[in-house]
Design a protein around this nucleic acid. Structure first.
Lengths: 265, 265
DNA sequence: ATAAAGTCAATTGTTGACAATTGACAATTA
DNA sequence: TAATTGTCAATTGTCAACAATTGACTTTAT
């Protein structure tokens, strides 16, 4: 077994932060053991813990988390739907290759879906829809002006802005897909990489300004503009995260292949 | 138990067609029992079999398919990642509400992702990428000119064109997400609704022409144009399918809310 | 020495039983 | 009567054992 040996059970440092900020999670939906296992293993995959031997064995995880194979099977299925492992019937699950390309691809998909959310949001805009998003934006600005800034809370609040937008985008299928597939793993990953983006007040203002522009576009009914703005938010995050990762991983590949946002517009 | 009573086991008429056209499936990836259960139950959900009582009980399905609850649990997880059921921990799974809105939402998401595939395809275009897609398009044209036209084969061949494009789109994460989440359920559904679109030779030509335009756009390196064309293909399918469904369900809701492709472009 | 066939340990798929939780109904009390 | 609490059947979560399959290794024959 080549996976990292750690008897951390299901209460890692990262899982603890979930508990500290439960308001982001759906109310009355406790995180099951399977989800917690999936969170930890998913983090490991994105961190590149699974090396050349990319096997994710059921027995291995069962022993690591001190549970039986049942919950582990569920966890592996969760990781598959997040696109972090591939399951080959009767042969087992394998972690996807850890690379900057993978991270970039995830952000690019997320950017497209976020853009669609913004477009749907604008196309079915209501006064309540505008108000709720503005409320969350206001909270962000408030945090931004307070003395003690909590980096983690910034990312949570940023997610709440998008959450309000999702609540009013009138495409429940899209919201469901995003929530269970790309969203969580992406945010989880960003929560550990993104803080560097929020170090300066300027950068924070720049980020929040785009959300405000989306609301402005909503008032104008310009769904295409909102879509582009939302995509750009994710593209900016992508570039920042990749930049951070490249600094700590000098052997990384060239960045050309990582860009998906078209320049021919 | 309010679900439809049918002791069809895992070899329904629909599953049989899979076997008849295995080339579309990934080679060496046999369909597991769980996947077959998910296929049948997913079809039922899209057909609206689960009425006001939308519960999808594990025991019910286990008895219906004559297996234990293990594979059924897997099947329900598959349905969740396809966005067809919602799972509430310790409370069970519930089928999403069957409505034209759901179908439209699925197509709209699929259109966006298909557009992204096309854009990635163009942005990383290679001679081989052009050749393979053109080969599949040629097969379609060949079928179109032959005497005995097989409606089912048309849809399969149409999927092969898109499959070739996915193979060259250089975003494995996107392909993985589409394959395991939105793609199969959408195609499964279309395979039973779409044939009406291919009744006339004109309509078939019109459909295939868009794919050819995408290849042309690839030669020009116009990824934005390819994205729009790909989206339009799905929007056309959406409109046809919805039209078909509305004829058989006169009580359906107004169509305004179903459209997501922007008119402001 | 090479290739084919056979063997076997490791791993996943499946099963049935047991534990824990939930939501509804009934009993109790103010 | 209305609200609260207690009880219980139904359902999902978890577990350990068994069955089936796979991939690698060994053996064997040419």
């Amino acid at each position: 077994m080549s996976t990292r040996e750690k008897q951390s059970a299901i209460t890692g440092a990262f899982a603890a932060e979930f508990v500290k900020s439960p308001s982001l999670r759906k109310a009355h939906r406790p995180r099951s053991i399977s989800e917690q296992i999936a969170d930890e293993v998913g983090s490991d995959i994105l961190d590149g813990v699974f090396g050349t031997n990319r096997r994710v064995g059921e027995q291995d995880l069962a022993e690591r988390f001190q549970v039986s194979r049942g919950p582990v099977r569920d966890a592996i299925r969760i990781l598959e739907k997040r696109g972090l492992v591939e399951i080959f019937p009767r042969r087992g699950a394998f972690a996807v290759e850890h690379s900057l390309t993978l991270i970039a691809d995830m952000f690019n998909v997320q950017a497209t879906l976020t853009g669609l959310v913004a477009r749907c949001y604008v196309m079915s805009i209501t006064p309540a829809g505008i108000a709720e998003v503005e409320t969350e934006i206001a909270k962000f600005r408030e945090m931004d002006n307070s003395k003690n800034i909590d980096i983690i809370e910034f990312t949570f609040q940023s997610a709440r802005i998008f959450g309000a937008m999702k609540r009013h985008c009138k495409n429940e299928y899209l919201v469901r897909i995003m929530g269970s597939v790309t969203d969580e793993s992406l945010w989880d990953f960003m929560w550990r990489r993104q803080p560097l983006d929020y170090l300066t007040k300027d950068q924070r203002s720049q980020g929040i300004a785009k959300w405000e522009e989306i609301v402005d576009a909503a008032r104008d009914g310009d769904d295409k503009k909102a879509e582009g703005l939302a995509q750009q938010i994710l593209y900016d995050s992508r570039d920042n995260v990749l930049e951070t990762m490249k600094k700590s991983r000098p052997e990384s590949i060239s960045a050309d292949r990582l860009l998906t946002n078209s320049k021919t517009k």
